[in-house]
Simulated scan of single mutants.
Amino acid sequence: MTRPTSATAQPAIVLNHVSKWFNKRSTRSFKETFINWVKREPVRSQQFQALKDVSFSIAEGESVAVMGLNGSGKSTTLKMVSGVMQPDGGEVLTRGRVAGLIEVGAGFHPDLTGRENVFLNAAILGMSEKETKDRFDEIVEFSGIGEFIDQEVKHYSSGMFMRLAFSVAIHVELDVLLVDEVLSVGDAPFRAKCNAKLKEMAQEGITMMIVSHSAGQVKELCTRGIVIRKGEVIFDGAIDAALEVLEQK
């Protein structure tokens, strides 16, 4: 696969005026809760707006970092793109097959072995059984957990979860890869191996949207940064400038 030129690239990800709210229940004592129950008064909840009219697009073959402090809305944005969450306002559009590393071990069943979970997770990501069989050895080799592949994953460490989840995702025939902080898990050699693979995928023209706190990582992988603060996009531009904005209070 070759990277599309600026003249031919189509949008791979589009967010049009996206908003998202969450209910935030207030903490009540047992006495207050009991009185409300006796009076048949509903439990009040406050709404928290996690995303406020967010709009941007990412072109095919582009690698973009989405950055912000904890609670800024960056991970919520990624979950919207992955389809894990739906917007309360606006729309999210994607082109092609999307694979996401949103949470370590997401989609893994604890009572199944690593081998069984490779096939399960690959199917969730849209791979056929034949595709998975053809790439199974590569997946296991990259993960580096071959001796544990037939062990139930409930006995895996978080690092082993991440290795296997990442390995499955990068061996999918995908057009868009979403990555949310999972590469902060694991030892330094494996993180370097993951970053090298992501660079290779970027050169092959895979569209990437990466949420990371690591300035070094995003500078290596991305040319563009989107900074979100309190649910709003406050900057969208060159990665070095985005990192400067991120450091501002």
Rank of each mutant, 00 (worst) to 15 (best):
D88S: 04
V81L: 05
S82V: 00
I139E: 11
M162Y: 00
E103K: 11
M162I: 05
N117L: 07
E141Q: 15
G114P: 06
F142M: 09
R135V: 09
E91D: 15
I102V: 14
T94Q: 11
T94N: 09
M85Q: 14
G90M: 04
E103L: 07
I102K: 02
D111V: 13
G90R: 01
A99E: 12
G96P: 12
V84Y: 00
E138Q: 13
G90E: 13
L125N: 09
P110Q: 13
S157E: 10
F136I: 09
L112I: 00
D150L: 07
M160T: 01
L112A: 05
K133T: 15
H109I: 02
T132D: 10
S82C: 08
G159Y: 00
E147D: 14
D88M: 07
V140M: 02
V140K: 10
T113S: 15
M85D: 12
P110K: 08
A106H: 03
N117F: 04
I149C: 10
S158G: 01
T132A: 11
T132P: 04
N121D: 12
L125W: 00
G105E: 11
E147M: 11
G83V: 06
G100L: 09
M162D: 01
I124Q: 11
T132H: 03
P110G: 13
G89R: 13
H155W: 08
L112K: 09
V153Q: 10
H155K: 13
F108I: 06
L78T: 02
T113K: 09
L78Q: 06
T94F: 10
V118F: 11
G107Q: 08
